[in-house]
Each structure stands twice: as structure tokens, then as C-alpha cells.
Design a protein around this nucleic acid. Structure first.
Lengths: 333, 333
DNA sequence: CTGTTAGCGCTTTCAC
DNA sequence: GTGAAAGCGCTAACAG
């Protein structure tokens, strides 16, 4: 029932293809008739049928986004950025939340293929150690976020970000600084560990291996890692955590043990999720530029449709945001 | 390049329509040939082209989901539920994050219409006071979540949930109980206020109007509301908050003012967002059944395609989850 | 500049 | 039971 090009054509007394051209701003059309038709189409409430167009052009103007858990505070923010950027390009995004089950991941990818999405973005560093191959067979280009090992990716500069955070702690006078890593995410965790070690080395310090805890990820595990650190004879005075959720877990354990933050312990996270600013105390953290990562990923995903990989492999800086969870080293210790 | 039905047909030495029927499990086909063709299709890696099918059948097997900010902790959880439920029905979901700008909301809706989604779900009680009319003109059925005023909606029982929360506080011995509401969400806030008042009334109590603060919504405002309450000569000993984010804001203000929770002040939220369990202290809250809301919304959205509105208007119970932010009334006060 | 004609890949009458 | 053919709404040669 919605009005089609044919309807517009007969109403305008021209042929179907003239309408098609007019609406597509084709150069080969008389300006007057074009504006006339465009206006007529608007009056009639014509809305292009993306399905029909997709069938004819083999371009659906739909982007697929595959995540394992859209509930992850970092991931949602990136997904939101992707959605906005896509809309800016006239694209829609199909969201596919796969969960941890590999079989379901495959099914979800099949669905995406059936829908003939033009390109796929995976803003989730965890997904796809198993699903990635299937994804790549899709035919559609696949862009990853924060997966530097893969060629078509857009990544945060984890090493530099971590270095910045730990340097800051060193500048505050801290010398016993621990790192709580993440096992769900070995590659990223290792990069942040590298930055941590580099910062220490620049101060002529070595990291005590008992200060490299984890790897862990969830806040529960941040909690456990903190507890382990508190049993040391010389516990750390500062903590650099894989991400904000880990930091929040550690904060909980510190609170439970009666360790005051930041007076007795400084804590730095990574990501700068929305919550970080609202936590008690507000979390000092290394902010990822989620919007920018998303924009670039979308641009790359669309460019790859035409085999343009110029944007591939970009490294985006991450910047320390100082808030209430860090302070100078307690003098008494 | 992907294999089409035609390819399968020639490979099988049958006609195109036979393949179509075989793959659609049509009854009018010899069982043997059907299984044969199905197997052959699988071997050849045939994947149905949803675009072509959509053009032929006027059914795209795509659901539209419109939100204002997918980053909202309650909304994401519901969206995740929608995505899962949709996948279970063989549907994909196009996510449209519109932001607060009404103009952009209209554009996003246009995109959805162009994609000819079969149905639309709006799990966001805020969006659409302006966009709703446009949405309804879409032609596609529209289902709302937590918008009881609208006929095709699935809703949490706010009144009963609130009543439960406040009754619990009363049972703990609290008598001076404040409510912090939300102005971004007047309808929901009012329902929860109603439950609050009902619970007080059941104890033969009246609410002091100075205890009905807000309406507010963001955690910053929860903070402000709490500060206002603390200036009262007889501040409340317990707080029922519109939602968890408000509660978290209030918790922050209490912390800043040196008021200990739950020893000196009990706080109850609403929603049970992921974070609630991880906060310090873990938040007592009224849990919405996000999965269930999502499932029902999807079922209704799909049923409405065939004009079946049996599920419309369902009321889903919300249940109190007791955690660490509530305790018996301090005896000294 | 504009009209005619094929498709795009699939479903669905209508015949056989 | 199976095949032939038309058509979904649009684009894109190909003619004029």
C-alpha cells in the first residue's frame, strides 16, 4: 500500500526510470523535471523501498554489529557510537548480541549473512576467537575494534594509555604499584601490562611479580585480586587495573577491608565507562575515545566495501582522567 | 557469487519452484525429493537471501528497536532481551539510537520505514512523546514497554513494586521515609509514588510532603535531592528512589555528608540494573523482569503483524531484592 | 535528456 | 507432485 515509484511516475506522467533518476539526483536529467518529481514524491509521501533497492543493487545499507554482551558498559558506548555514525552515512545497523555460546554465535552470523549486510563491525575483543573465521567467510568485510592483531581493525593505544596512568601514580610518589590484569582478554591485558612495565622502567623500577595479579576481568575478580594483594606483607599503595569494572571490584574489596581510597590506596581504571564518574569515589581512569573508535570503524567498514583499506590499523590515543580515587602516597607507609 | 536457489535447482536437475517448496517444507512435495534437495542445498552452502524473500513476501523478518539512549543501564538490558527473543523467532533487530533531538528521531524512524521492518518495539519510556505519532504512522505495528497509557504495551507493575519496597522499609521500623521521584518520566514516577503512598496508608501513615522530593532522574539529581533532605530538621531514616541511578546519586550525597548507609540511612532503588549488586554498598532494589518484558514485547510485536493483540497490556510483577543498603531503623533517632 | 527492457532472488498462482 | 511464468519495487544498461 505504500506509494511506489510507479505511482509517482504515473502521477507525474513520466516513465518509471525518470523518477528513479530524479530521485537519485542523476546528472542526466533536466533540473526542472527533477525538482518537480522530487517535490511530487514528497507530497505523495513516497518512501524508497530499501528492500527492493537492495535486491537490485546488491547493497542493503545495513551494517551488522556483533557483540557477545551488549550490556558491557564499554561495549554499549561503542555500539551507540557506531549506530550514530552509521545513521550519519544513511546506514542502519542490525545488532546481534550472541552471548557466550559459540553455536549461537554462528547462528547469529548466519542471520546476518541472510540479511546481506554490507559490512560487519565487531566492537568486542572477546567474541570470535571461535566465531571470527565464520565471520570472515561471510563475504562482507569485517572490521574489528581493539584487536590489533587483525589487519582491518581500529584500536586504542593501550600501551601509551597504561604508561600514562602508571607514570601519574609514580609522580604522586607511589612506588609499590600493582597491576590487576584480565584473562578474558589476554591481548589487551598484555598491552596494558607492557605500558605499566615501561612506566616503571622509565623510573628505573622493576615490577615485583607479586604485584602483577590476575589476570582477571569481572568486578568479582577485581575483588579477589585486591584481597590477595592485601595479604602481602608489603601491600601496594597504588593499583592500576585492567578496566573500570576490575577497579570497581577492587574498590569494593578495599572498602570491605577498611582500606580508605584514596587516602591509603590509589586506584586507576581503564575505559572511562559512564559509571566511573558516578562511583564512590569517582574513579581516576584512562579514557578510551569510544566515539572516535566507532566513527573510524564505521568509515573503515564502509570504505572496505569498495576495497579501500586506508583507515585500517589506526591507533587512537587514550587519555588519563584524574578523579577522586587517586592521591599522593601516604607518607606514613 | 553466493549460491542461489537457481544454482541448487540446476544442480539437482529440478525446477526453481521445486527447490523453493522443498526449502519451505511445503506439503505439496515428495518427501524424498525434499530431503534430497535440502541436503544438496546444505552441501552447496546455500543461504536464503532475506532481501529477495522480503521483496516477494513483504515480510523482512526484521524488527526495529527505537531508543533514546542505549547506554541507559535499564534500557540495554531490555534491548539485549529483545535481541535474544527476536533471534529465537528467526528475526534480526535493527537498533536505532536516536538521542534526544526530535528531528533526528524522525530521521531514524524514516530509516526504519525504508528498511520495511515488520514491527517496531520502543523499550524507552522517554522517547516519543514527540516521535510516537510518526512511529504509529509507519504502518508497522508498534509495541511500547512501560507505557501503560498506550494500548499495545507491556508494563512493569510499578505500583505493586513500590508498595513492596516501602512496606519492607516500614517493617524494618522506618517511619520517616522519603520518595525521590523523576521528572524525565512523570508517568512511571507517579505510579511508584502511588505505591509508596499506598504502603504508608496501609500502616496508617501519611506522607509528609517534604519527604516527596524531586521529581528527578539522573544520579546528579539524586544527589541534590538527598542534600535537600539532609537539611530538614528531621531528616528521613529511609529513602525510596525512583530508580537505581537516582539511588546511587543519593548514596553519593549521603557518603559526602558522612551519613553511613545502611547504619544511619536505608536506601532502596528500582530496576535492579547490573550495577546495583556491585555498588558499595550493594543496593536493595525492586527488580524489573527485563527478560520477561522483552520476550513478551517481541511476542506481541510479532503477533500484531497478524492482528493478534492478545498479549497487549500485560502487567509484569516487580520484586524486591534485599541487599546491603537497607537495615533496621537506627534506634537512637 | 527520457523511455524501454531486463533483471536482482525469491514466492506464488496457475497449469500440467 | 512438479514446472512455467508472473511479479515484488527498484536499478541499470541500452536505445533513442
Amino acid at each position: 500500500m505504500p506509494v511506489s515509484m510507479k505511482d509517482v511516475a504515473t502521477a507525474a506522467g513520466v516513465s518509471l526510470s525518470t523518477v528513479s533518476r530524479a530521485l537519485a539526483d542523476s546528472p542526466r536529467i533536466k533540473p526542472e523535471t527533477r525538482t518537480h518529481i522530487q517535490q511530487l514524491a514528497k507530497e505523495m509521501g513516497y518512501l524508497p523501498n530499501a528492500i527492493a533497492r537492495g535486491l537490485a543493487t546488491h547493497r542493503t545499507f545495513v551494517l551488522g554489529v556483533v557483540v557477545m554482551d551488549i550490556t558491557d558498559p564499554l561495549i554499549v558506548e561503542i555500539v551507540r557510537g557506531i549506530d550514530h555514525a552509521a545513521q550519519g552515512h544513511g546506514y542502519s545497523v542490525i545488532l546481534s548480541d550472541c552471548g557466550p555460546d559459540p553455536e549461537r554465535q554462528l547462528e547469529a552470523i548466519q542471520l546476518l549473512r541472510q540479511q546481506r549486510v554490507d559490512s560487519i563491525i565487531v566492537p568486542d575483543p572477546i567474541i570470535g576467537d571461535s566465531a571470527l573465521p565464520a565471520l570472515l567467510e561471510t563475504g562482507a568485510p569485517v572490521v574489528l575494534i581493539n584487536r590489533p592483531q587483525y589487519r582491518y581493525s581500529i584500536n586504542t593505544d593501550n600501551v601509551a594509555g597504561a604508561r600514562q596512568a602508571v607514570s601519574y601514580l609514580l609522580d604522586l610518589g607511589h612506588r609499590r604499584i600493582a597491576y590487576i590484569g584480565a584473562n578474558r582478554n589476554p591481548a589487551e591485558s598484555h598491552e596494558r601490562l607492557t605500558g605499566y612495565l615501561e612506566a616503571l622502567a622509565a623510573y628505573g623500577l622493576m615490577s615485583d611479580t607479586e604485584f602483577q595479579v590476575g589476570p582477571n576481568d569481572w568486578s568479582e575478580n577485581g575483588w579477589q585480586a585486591m584481597q590477595a594483594l592485601l595479604t602481602l606483607s608489603q601491600p601496594p599503595t597504588a593499583l592500576f587495573c585492567f578496566n573500570d569494572m576490575t577497579a570497581i571490584g577492587a574498590l569494593g574489596a578495599a572498602h570491605a577491608a577498611g582500606v580508605r581510597v584514596p587516602e591509603e590506596l590509589s586506584v586507576v581504571g581503564f575505559d572511562d565507562i559512564n559509571l566511573a564518574a558516578h562511583f564512590i569515589p569517582p574513579l581516576t581512569t584512562v579514557a578510551q575515545q569510544k566515539e572516535r573508535l566507532a566513527e573510524l570503524a564505521v568509515s573503515l567498514a564502509l570504505a572496505l566495501i569498495d576495497d579501500d583499506a586506508a583507515l585500517a590499523g589506526q591507533l587512537i590515543p587514550a587519555n588519563l582522567v584524574v578523579r577522586g580515587s587517586t592521591a599522593a602516597r601516604p607518607s606514613k607507609r
